[in-house]
Design a protein around this nucleic acid. Structure first.
Lengths: 123, 123
DNA sequence: TGCACAATGAGAACCGATTATCATCAAGCA
DNA sequence: TGCTTGATGATAATCGGTTCTCATTGTGCA
């Protein structure tokens, strides 16, 4: 049984309020003023996944990220300038057309790359 | 100036004949009988990218992969069973619809996950 | 045929991400 | 108010991937 954990809920809230999936170091940086250690962040993120409250998100060339479980179907946009990752609603669909004969499709991921609004404006 | 390289062309040919992008260790394994060293594989792959003959392909949670430059627009299918990655022609399109206001889209990647024909048959 | 130097292979080193270790801290109960 | 025990933080260890180092090889030209 998991007893009192100062941070458990705080991490959940942090992920829920974020614009997209966060890495362990992102979470630590956002909770910097609490002094939380990186080991604790990893521990709680992994526990969150085990408990089904969180899901891991893998994006090309980056560390593992985490977001709340149960979000509606969505994909991700990675800003090439600030490296932030945003969840984007919707899906282009029609993935089946791409699947070669004899292959079985289980899942798909769409990743958009470009520049986020903040970085576009910053020019 | 690059002079005689036994392997340069061999690696190009290997990538060109493959079903999809290959990692450095994939290439080494395919050229196993030549005794090529991993350092050489990495060196030639990186040179290939510098020279514009190859492009690097990043997929979630895997090592960097390489494929010939100039291929027509395509995406990738990763087999969850054998971990092989296949290039798949075509594109679902309509990516712009997903881009949030104020964001600028530069590129997109679509990755399909499932089981390849060989692994489906192997059951 | 000999030489200079690029190419190579083996393995050490490095790197970022992640996990393990362990002493310390503190919540909740006696 | 003490005690037990899970939670925590600092840091070492680990892990896959990749790059670096350097002695050796062998190509291509003199």
């Amino acid at each position: 049984m998991r007893r009192h954990s100062r941070y458990r809920q705080l991490i959940q809230d942090t992920l829920r309020d974020a614009d997209g999936p966060l890495s362990a170091t992102d979470v630590q940086a956002l909770l910097d003023d609490t002094g939380i250690g990186l080991a604790t962040v990893y521990r709680l993120l992994n526990e969150g996944v085990e408990d089904g409250e969180l899901v891991g998100v893998e994006l090309p060339g980056g560390p593992r990220r985490f977001e709340p479980a149960g979000l509606p179907h969505h994909h991700h946009f990675e800003c090439r300038a600030c490296r932030k990752v945003f969840a984007v609603r919707g899906c282009p669909g029609r993935m089946e057309r791409l699947v070669p004969d004899g292959f079985e499709l289980e899942q798909h991921e769409v990743i958009l790359f470009g520049r986020c609004a903040d970085c576009v404006t910053a020019d």
